[in-house]
């Protein structure tokens, strides 16, 4: 096999099943801390959901129940986004930079593409886990049908892949952990506010609505919310297409930047 990523950092991603042991390595670490981690995945969004759902929902016309459902579906998208981003930045960076885990892997018959692919799928899995935790809460409390929650799983995985890929580009550029705070504060937080997580995007001024349609999270929310409710949105192909495009472009850019960083 010719290893072209070494001589040409713009080579297309070489995806192989070799990413699996990288994923399994991260999974094993997670499993050791699973109880605390799952508890956090469940309790965190529940506090947000119940606080905002009942409090804010109560003062809104239409009552708490429907707003709770609305918010829960939005949180599936935003929690997936945050968990995947966090894993692909802070955690991946410590494996790449601090612990030298990536260096050790690269001494084995593994390519950098395998490592980055493994991190991508792993971070997406972590995101999915957060999304599924919220879906479970919504189902248990009767704010989403089980069938809708199950149908939303592939969409949540796609959101996870998208934000994992984007965060891996940040990882490739970072000189330290501080760098990620800028991305969280300047990119992710505004995106969450404008993508229809807390209120329908239709409430925003027309110009802002147009701008919001650029955000991947907007498409994530627009895809997930109807599916959780039990209907496939008519424009689902557009929303999924935009997410796939962000994921593919993000992954490619992340790979190019990471190759330049580590293989030069």
């Amino acid at each position: 096999m010719i290893n072209s990523s070494l001589t040409n950092c713009y080579a297309l991603p070489a995806i192989s099943r070799r990413f699996v042991p990288v994923w399994r390595r991260n999974f094993l670490v997670w499993r050791k801390l699973a109880v605390a981690s799952v508890l956090g995945n469940l309790v965190d969004p529940m506090i947000m959901l119940f606080g905002l759902g009942y409090g804010l929902g109560g003062v809104m016309s239409g009552g708490g129940t429907s707003y709770f459902s609305f918010l829960a579906a939005g949180f599936v998208a935003s929690a997936t986004m945050y968990a995947a981003s966090f894993e692909a930045m802070f955690s991946a960076f410590s494996r790449m930079h601090g612990q030298k885990t990536w260096d050790a892997i690269l001494n084995a018959p593994m390519d950098l593409d395998d490592v980055v692919t493994g991190e991508l799928v792993w971070a997406a899995s972590k995101g999915l886990l957060s999304g599924v935790a919220i879906l479970m809460v919504a189902v248990v409390f009767g704010y989403a049908p089980l069938s809708g929650a199950i149908a939303a799983v592939p969409a949540a995985m796609l959101i996870g892949l998208t934000f994992a890929a984007l965060a891996l580009t940040m990882n490739a550029l970072a000189q330290g952990y501080d760098f990620f705070s800028y991305y969280m504060t300047l990119v992710l937080t505004p995106m969450m506010m404008l993508s229809g997580v807390f209120f329908p995007v239709g409430q925003l001024p027309a110009a802002v609505q147009t701008a919001a349609a650029v955000f991947p999270l907007y498409h994530g929310v627009a895809l997930v919310r109807p599916i959780v409710g039990g209907t496939l949105p008519p424009e689902w192909l557009v929303h999924a297409g935009v997410l796939i495009a962000y994921a593919a472009a993000g992954f490619y850019v992340a790979l190019v930047l990471t190759r330049r960083r580590l293989l030069s």
């Binding site: 096999m1 010719i2 290893n3 070494l6 001494n107 018959p109 390519d111």
Partner: peptide, 15 residues
């Protein structure tokens, strides 16, 4: 480097 991964199957590294 073209076949480096194949070569590394038979190599051990102490960094």
């Amino acid at each position: 480097p073209t076949q480096a991964r194949d070569a590394r199957r038979r190599v051990g590294v102490v960094p």
